[in-house]
Nucleic acid binder design. Structure first.
Lengths: 199, 199
DNA sequence: ACCTGCCCAGAACGATCGTTCTTAGAACGC
DNA sequence: GCGTTCTAAGAACGATCGTTCTGGGCAGGT
């Protein structure tokens, strides 16, 4: 094998990208800054990720995977498997509250990336748009899965998902209290779905 | 008075800024493109708006004003004054659905601007961040006002606001169906608040 | 020891963008 | 008419950014 392995270089690059891109925004961070923070040469960076869009998409993919894993882990800890959909979905809001309360919270990284790069049809931007869409779809599907007890898991899961997105967008601009309001709304929506189930 | 009036130049600049910034993103549109579309010289542009951040903030302010006016008008049309809070708040979702169904919808312009410029503490960016915060606050306060019939108008309004934000963010990425789900959630939340009122 | 291939650090390039400057022209007060 | 002040059109400047290139060095195979 050759010198420092590619896997470590990759993970250091992704870690640096996450730190910098999320905190300062994507287009405000140059490739040199990623290189400096990761301690990886530019040549290697471009060998592993042939363009900035590739790096951004890779960062979003790995970050989304960790985010969803953290969410699932939090749900399993607060409301393990035998618990009902209601308890498990409400537990998801505990993870959301933690995310929003984290100092340096700047809204949903995927929505931010979408806003910066996702809009127009420029071909290379599709890489990023696809990564965002993938994460949102997987997150929504996970919530739909949590809602399996209800007669309409898809509807319930999608409504909970909208609350999660709304809480992140709102609390980024207007403060963390939105997380609590979103949880209250979720409890109401789930109570109504419970009522529908008994009816 | 001097030659072509400043007011027309201003409005043409703001119109051009709205068209270009919303469709292609802020940092993807240069000042020359705004100048070309508005038919106003660069010198004049910089006399009216001393920096790009000033122009962006002005665009957001005037666009937000029109957006909120359109929302209020839609509510007054669908559920005029004697109608109750429930009908008026649900009417707001009709305006939201129109916005989301508009071809070329790319999410909330304010969230997008926040993602591009709002995050870090750079001084000139505060202009934009302040404009975003102002719009979101006014929108939320308007919804709280619509909820006046409920015992907790603030809580109800904030929850409806979160649903609106979530619907925009979600439907930008995953499709317009989120608007309907958000309306369903709103109906549920309002029904619960109605129940609380009767209790 | 000598290639061969990969690596790093950093310079360099080309493009773009925000902003300012230059040049020239047109409208006004006197 | 003359200066003044505003304007439009665009060149120019300085900075930044994504990307590529160059030079020099270290590791292995034979």
């Amino acid at each position: 094998m050759r010198v420092v392995d590619h896997d470590e270089a990759r993970s250091r690059l992704l870690e640096a990208a996450e730190e910098l891109y999320y905190r300062r925004g994507i287009h405000a961070v140059g490739m040199d800054q990623v290189r400096d923070r990761a301690g990886v040469s530019l040549a290697r960076l471009y060998k592993l990720y042939p363009s900035k869009h590739h790096l951004v998409a890779a960062y979003l993919r790995v970050y989304g995977r960790r985010l969803r894993a953290r969410l699932a882990e939090s749900v399993e800890r607060a409301a393990p498997a035998p618990a009902g959909s209601r308890a498990r979905l409400l537990a998801a809001f505990e993870s959301l509250r933690e995310t929003i309360d984290t100092p340096g919270f700047r809204g949903c990284a995927f929505v931010n990336a979408w806003a910066e790069l996702g809009g127009h049809g420029d071909e290379s931007h599709l890489l990023v748009a696809e990564a965002v869409r993938e994460h949102k779809t997987l997150l929504r599907d996970y919530l739909i899965g949590l809602a399996e007890d209800y007669p309409d898991p898809r509807g319930v899961g999608e409504q909970i998902h909208i609350l999660v997105e709304g809480a992140m967008a709102t609390s980024a601009v207007l403060g963390a209290e939105a997380a609590r309001q979103a949880r209250d709304s979720a409890a109401t929506v789930l109570a109504a779905a419970d009522g529908a189930r008994r009816a």
